[in-house]
């Protein structure tokens, strides 16, 4: 047992690199299961209010810009592609390709956040931010305000996850540039990918729920 070379990246509680990788992927999915319940709670609350105020939610939804939401959907899915390619490059130990794909992922994530910030500003100017001089020309302003409460809560929590992901990407780009990851040790990049793809999946549901009502 002790006569095989011990990889520097192998933590002593694991038997080998495979077991270490499997364990970290399992641990990450346990964390993501918690995240599923977190966003799931918001989704259920939204569903109940949309069921109660279908007309107001439809009217309020028409104040969102479908083109911007659709553009951001494309941008975020493209960032998932570059993230997946970064993981693949890490599996092959291609340092330059890891860095390039992580940088692309960061750039696309930043575009998403910039568009989101522009949308938020537009809503502020149009008095559609609940609590900040909200005013709505429609049949049920109070119920429409509920829609925007969910809009800001859900897209805000999603954007917060994106900001955290962008910070993590900076860390991984730094590490990858120093050649930390290679074919025998790419687990952390895989875990980063799981987080990024999960945030993408949340948006895959938010987009039709908020932008595509009737």
């Amino acid at each position: 047992m002790a006569d095989i070379a011990h990889p520097a990246e192998l933590a002593h509680q694991f038997e080998d690199m495979d077991q270490q990788l499997d364990s970290s992927v399992f641990g990450m999915w346990v964390f993501l299961a918690q995240e599923i319940m977190f966003f799931g709670g918001l989704f259920v609350a939204y569903t109940i209010y949309r069921g109660a105020y279908p007309e107001a939610f439809r009217e309020a939804s028409h104040h969102l810009d479908l083109r911007l939401g659709g553009f951001n959907t494309v941008v975020l899915i493209a960032s998932s592609l570059t993230m997946a390619l970064a993981v693949r490059a890490a599996q092959l130990g291609q340092r330059a390709a890891i860095v390039a794909n992580l940088l692309l992922t960061l750039a696309l994530g930043s575009v998403f956040l910039a568009v989101k910030a522009y949308e938020y500003h537009h809503k502020y100017v149009e008095h559609l931010v609940p609590g900040l001089g909200f005013s709505f020309e429609g049949s049920h302003p109070a119920n429409a305000q509920m829609f925007f409460v969910f809009y800001f809560l859900m897209t805000g929590m999603h954007a917060l996850h994106m900001v955290v992901g962008a910070g993590l990407l900076l860390y991984f780009i730094h590490k990858a540039r120093r050649g930390v990851y290679h074919a025998g040790y790419y687990g952390p990049v895989e875990i980063m990918g799981l987080y990024w793809h999960f945030v993408d999946i949340v948006w895959i549901f938010l987009f039709p729920m908020l932008y595509l009502i009737g």
């Binding site: 399992f26 999915w29 299961a33 319940m37 990918g193 793809h197």
Partner: peptide, 24 residues
């Protein structure tokens, strides 16, 4: 599609698959 292919769950060990299914 994202879970199976981008997140590699398709080729993950049974314990990981079980965790994903349990989450949903």
């Amino acid at each position: 599609l994202v879970i199976l292919f981008f997140m590699h769950v398709r080729s993950s060990p049974p314990l990981t698959k079980l965790t994903v299914v349990a989450g949903f």
